[in-house]
């Protein structure tokens, strides 16, 4: 089990390593990335994530226990970024390793759905207003005085 709130970038490869177990044949890793959605203020450039840390870690850990009980997951990860996360960066990783693929898919789906609903994490959008094109500098021609 691995519940984490991180100021640093999350690694899918690290999550996979955390889940790898010779006795578990099905591994599913889900990564949620920040999208460049349009907003009235311009395209999203980043999301600012904030968590109520202790309760968030507790809920993540409780979720993992539930997934192990319900789906027989042998290993799980539930990681979330906090702080500023730029477009294209991974904001959340959840995953489960189970005996077979059906349980692994179901467990991972359950983890991300419950995480979004029950973990005290909030996001604020940071958008960039498109700049108007800069006026071209006008060139003055030297006049011939002759």
């Amino acid at each position: 089990m691995s519940a984490r709130l991180s100021l640093r970038p999350l690694s899918v490869a690290a999550a996979y390593r955390e889940l790898a177990d010779p006795n578990l044949g099905g591994i599913v890793v889900f990564a949620g990335r920040v999208r460049s959605d349009p907003t009235p203020a311009g395209p999203v450039v980043a999301l600012l994530y904030e968590a109520h840390r202790a309760p968030a870690l507790q809920v993540l850990s409780d979720l993992e226990h539930e997934v192990q009980r319900r789906f027989g997951a042998g290993r799980t990860v539930a990681w979330h970024r906090v702080g500023r996360v730029r477009v294209g960066e991974v904001a959340v990783i959840v995953g489960a390793a189970c005996g077979h693929r059906d349980q692994a898919f179901a467990a991972t789906r359950f983890l991300i759905d419950r995480l979004k609903r029950n973990v005290p994490v909030w996001k604020e959008v940071r958008a960039r207003r498109a700049r108007p094109p800069r006026p071209r500098p006008t060139r003055r021609r030297a006049r011939s005085t002759g």
């Binding site: 995480l115 994490v121 909030w122 996001k123």
Partner: peptide
Amino acid sequence: FAVHPPYGGG
């Protein structure tokens, strides 16, 4: 006593 508005993780 903490006030938690609807969550927005993920």
